[in-house]
Amino acid sequence: MKLVGAAAILLGSLLAALTQLNAEKTREETRRALRRSLILLRNELYERQTILPEAFPGLAGASGCEAAQGFYVFLSEEMRQLGERSFSTIWRDCAGKKLAMLDEEDTEAIASLGTTLGGSELELQCAALEKCADTLERKSAQCAAERAEKRRMTLGVTLSLGAFVIILLI
């Protein structure tokens, strides 16, 4: 019985570790998808001056990631409230609701784009989109460097904890 309990605890710890790693993987996928979409949006604005309501459905389709797709789809729906609410408020609310899996720094970088997007100066908006895409890319690179170490540490801690519990029970 003690062995079964110890095995259950060990398994639980492993699962928790894997869940955390999976969450990090989802965050990274979302970050990459958002970065791609911001570059696409920047090109749409610069090359064709596409208006935002026409750009969002295309970005949803091209994102290749559930969370990013969900963000742009929700944004398209919420744009119906434009006029009653300002665009920056709509954008920020959508980012807060649909990109909650990202960490605070990434969410704020995306959310603050809403104060620049939609203005009259195209170059300013393109620069803001490029800057946000760079921020996400830097974060991805930072996380990639930390990931291997984190994985080793997480698994190590989990296995040590499990072994400790087994010893205690036995």
């Binding site: 208006i51 935002l52 309501p53 434009l82 009259s120 195209l122």
Partner: peptide
């Protein structure tokens, strides 16, 4: 002023740059 900004955003789909040449 915020009301006027919202009118312009509504009129341009929050894309004032699309009307920048005319404006």
């Amino acid at each position: 002023e915020e009301d006027l900004v919202r009118v312009l955003q509504k009129a341009t789909g929050a894309s004032l740059y699309s009307a920048a040449e005319s404006m």
